[in-house]
Design a protein around this nucleic acid. Structure first.
Length: 550
RNA sequence: GCGCCAGUAGCUCAAUCGGAUAGAGCGUUGGCCUCCGGAGCCAAAGGUUGGGGGUUCGAUUCCCUCCUGGCGCACCA
């Protein structure tokens, strides 16, 4: 498929080579002018070369254009504007043919190969199995899921992973909390530990266990009971989390258990490795890692005074395990409370000899749930939280995914529950889905009128401004995908969907697709099919329904 | 106190690696259905891009400084 950007870059590079004998390693910036009357593409090379060539930008641009060959004859018009922008307008013929190419690519349209099959992993959500999932988890789930899809679209071999912290202190606390509630239900006076889990879900867990297993744990010693109940409660919570992710259309490749790492003593091995590298020392009865040697603000404890491995040590082992499984790039999406944790993890990655940039963390910022204009606060410990399930049930999965993806991931997000529920034009999800339904309906209507949609059509009749605008907008799609993947910005896809929907609605309002003009009808049906295809491709990527009717 | 992120239209947000006249949606105002879905379209009003300096052909974007907001600074996870 001949991409306009690729072609123009190549032609410009050739012109530069013949005109100024410049090496071809120069990166040619090609952008889409903000304003349509400047043409389809613009380059700033002349501005950039002014210094090295010791010449005025406009003069450089002129010389360049004299040597611009346009081998394939795609360019209709070139111009030099402003301080030295070179603008290119492609022939309508090019765009008309491009529409057919988009259709022939089908669901592969938008995909590319620049990832080169590199193995990439995104770890996201990884919520503690000691409580219900909250809305930040819902946001992380949507974002992580779409990131992986984006990576795969552009040629990476990307996997989804969920890390389950099913070991350590938090789990012991859960056990003690469930145990207390269990005994309370049986009429005993066993208080929930002060730093334990206070949420109502703990009572629900205890009641469930009581219903299923009876009071058989009451006779056990407290410690033993807590341990047993921790095990049972944990299994229940994990199943809940897995069910929630599935319902949310997120398919993880791996659910990784911290307890497996501990069982295999992976953390001890890492400790040995760090010791051998001379990166540890003892102080105050604890074992420390010299993370400050690698950019962290201070050193960190690996083994506590009590001889317990810290979460950090086990986490280092976990990340090392990712590398050993062959991943070349590792992305972690963490919650806003893990901000201060990045530097030490990055230090550990480097200490183990991995490239610094092979490990990247993105903080999924806080979500403010607004109801009636008021922020609903949440705190897992107190149990006063908004659960992910509640949100999904209330606003629906399509709206939830769209809203969470719509914003840059490292910025706090205001989620207006009332808006997400509205089935009106205020709600962007419906705007986009409506465009798809409308497009589907046109095809349906054509068939009902006895119009046979031919495989081939003479698209050269598509000369109206609105028609070409739609094709040009469709043509932007692969670039949107590439950039969304490159910059980890899935919100580019939702923005694009809204633009494409608007461009199509605008065309639709002005021109009739199915008419007495047989040739024009066929050509416009191709335009409609192209729009449907790209809307569907993008919505599929986001795992949002593309309805045939609403 | 130190660190990270942010501050753009009344509100929620965009803005291509430093590019041209800073764009959308909602809200407001005014138009558009004998016709493929009006969950739509067209138009108008609305901006000192938090303030001040700097770098240069050019700054919302980079640097410095100040102001404001969020978050983080455990031998917790």
């Amino acid at each position: 498929m001949l991409k306009p950007e690729t072609y123009l870059r190549e032609q410009i590079a050739r012109a530069l080579a013949t005109a100024f004998a410049l090496e071809n390693d120069l990166e040619i910036i090609l952008e889409r002018p903000r304003q349509e009357n400047f043409g389809d593409y613009a380059t700033t090379v002349a501005l950039g070369l002014a210094k090295t060539l010791r010449n005025a930008p406009r003069s450089i641009a002129e010389t360049l254009l004299e040597h611009f060959a346009d081998d394939a004859g795609l360019v209709e018009k070139t111009s030099i504007d402003g301080p030295g922008f070179i603008n290119f307008t492609l022939k309508p013929t090019f765009w008309q043919q491009y529409l057919l190419q988009i259709l022939s690519e089908g669901e592969r349209f938008g995909a590319s190969g620049w990832g080169g099959g590199e193995k990439v992993q995104v770890e996201f959500v990884s919520a503690n199995p000691t409580g219900p999932l909250n809305v930040v988890s819902a946001r992380a789930a949507a974002v992580g899921d779409v990131l992986v899809s984006l990576f795969n679209q552009v040629g990476f071999d990307a996997k989804r992973e969920y890390y389950i912290n099913d070991a350590g202190r938090q789990v012991r606390l859960l056990g003690a909390s469930v145990s207390a509630r269990y005994m309370q239900l049986l009429g005993h006076d066993e208080p929930v530990p002060e730093d334990g889990y206070q949420g109502d879900y703990v009572i629900d867990l205890a009641r469930e266990i009581l219903d299923e297993d009876g009071d058989r744990y009451a006779a056990q010693p407290k410690e033993e009971r807590a341990e047993k109940l921790a095990e049972i409660a944990l299994a229940k919570m994990i199943r809940l989390h897995q069910a929630a992710m599935e319902q949310y259309r997120v398919q993880y490749d791996v659910w990784f258990r911290e307890s497996d790492l501990r069982r295999d003593n992976k953390h001890q091995q890492i400790l040995e490795t760090l010791k051998q590298k001379g990166l540890t020392y003892e102080k105050d009865g604890a074992i420390w890692f010299k993370s400050s040697d690698f950019g962290d603000e201070k050193d960190r404890v690996l083994i506590t005074r009590e001889g317990e491995p810290t979460y950090f040590l086990v986490d280092i082992a976990y990340h090392e395990d990712k590398y050993q499984r062959g991943f070349q790039k590792i992305y972690d999406l963490w919650g806003p409370d893990h901000h201060g944790y990045i530097a030490r993890m990055s230090a550990a990655i480097q200490a183990l000899g991995h490239p610094k940039d092979s490990f990247q963390v993105r903080i999924i910022q806080q979500v403010n749930m607004l109801r009636g204009g008021e922020v609903v606060k949440m705190s897992k410990r107190r149990g006063n939280i908004i659960e992910m399930q509640e949100v999904l049930e209330e606003v629906g999965i399509d709206a939830a995914r769209f809203f969470f993806i719509m914003r840059k991931l490292d910025q706090p997000l205001d989620f207006d529950i009332d808006l997400a529920k509205k089935q009106t034009d205020e709600n962007p999800v419906y705007y986009v889905q409506y465009a798809h339904a409308r497009v589907a309906n046109i095809l349906e209507y054509a068939r009902s009128q006895g119009v046979e949609i031919a495989d081939e059509a003479d698209v050269s009749v598509l000369r109206e401004a609105e028609e070409l605008s739609v094709i040009k907008k469709l043509a932007e799609y692969p670039e949107v995908i590439s950039k969304a993947a490159k910059f980890l910005e899935p919100h580019r896809v939702t923005n694009y969907l809204m633009e494409l929907a608007a461009t199509f609605h605008s065309f639709y309002q002005k021109h009739r697709v199915v008419s007495d003009d047989v040739a024009l009808t066929q050509a416009r049906l191709k335009l409609v099919q192209g729009t449907k295809l790209v809307l569907k491709n993008a919505l599929d990527l986001l795992k949002i329904t593309a309805p045939e009717r609403m």
